[in-house]
Simulated assay, not measured.
Amino acid sequence: MNRLIGLFLMVLLSASCAKEENLIPDLPVNFSAPLTDPRLSRLSTAGGAVSLTGYGVAGIIIYRRADNAYVAYDRCSTVNPEKKNAVIVDDPSLTATDQVSGAKYSLYDGSPVKAPAKTSLKKYTVIITSSTIQVSN
């Protein structure tokens, strides 16, 4: 009986210590547009962000950081990702919020800044060539 209880406790502890995984599905993302595209007008200055639908799981967010680097994330919240709740860019555009769970994420690096989020937003590759931006995975 003691062996059974010990085994049960070991299984319970190993399950609770398991690393949280980012369960956002891997869908093909291939967005490309000139930086002069009117949909991207908010990216003309540092700190600007745009949300686009039709890409990834719940759309994508492209953010222009203060160092003028561009980053892109899937809008799918990492809290209950199976529900595919899209995060909304806050004003000012330093964070994005899952309006269902209340979780917040930094747009600088996608990291969680408010519980219940524990995992960063799914990040995509951004390439700038001359006057075109491309987001892909």
Rank of each mutant, 00 (worst) to 15 (best):
R75F: 01
S130F: 13
D74A: 06
G48Y: 02
S130L: 15
Y124M: 02
N22W: 09
S131P: 06
T129H: 14
D91Q: 15
S44A: 09
D67W: 00
S51T: 09
E82K: 13
Y124T: 02
V135W: 02
T45Q: 08
G59Q: 10
P25R: 15
N80K: 14
A103W: 01
L107H: 00
L94S: 03
P28I: 13
V135S: 00
L35I: 09
S16Q: 14
I133D: 00
C76V: 09
G47F: 01
S51Y: 05
G56M: 07
R3S: 08
Y63S: 01
V100D: 09
D91Y: 14
L35M: 13
V135R: 00
I88P: 04
S51G: 07
K118V: 12
Q134Y: 09
D37K: 11
S106G: 04
P92G: 05
T53I: 12
S32N: 14
Q134D: 11
L23K: 15
E21C: 15
E82F: 15
Y63R: 00
A72T: 01
S131K: 15
Y55P: 02
C76Q: 10
R64K: 12
T45R: 08
I127E: 10
D74M: 11
S77W: 06
S131M: 14
Q99A: 13
P25H: 14
Y55M: 10
V79L: 03
L121V: 03
P38G: 05
Y108C: 04
Y105K: 01
T97W: 00
Y63K: 00
A69K: 07
D26Y: 15
N85D: 08
K122I: 00
V135T: 00
E82Q: 14
N85F: 09
T36N: 11
I88N: 07
I133W: 04
T125C: 08
K84V: 05
G102W: 09
V100R: 14
D98I: 01
T95S: 02
K19L: 15
S41M: 12
A15G: 10
S131W: 14
D90E: 09
C76R: 10
T45A: 06
M1A: 03
Q134K: 14
S77P: 00
V11Y: 03
P38R: 11
P34Q: 14
L13N: 08
A33K: 11
R42L: 13
L9E: 05
T53Y: 12
V89W: 00
I88D: 05
R75A: 03
I5A: 06
A15H: 11
R42P: 03
N30C: 08
A58K: 11
Y108Q: 08
C76K: 02
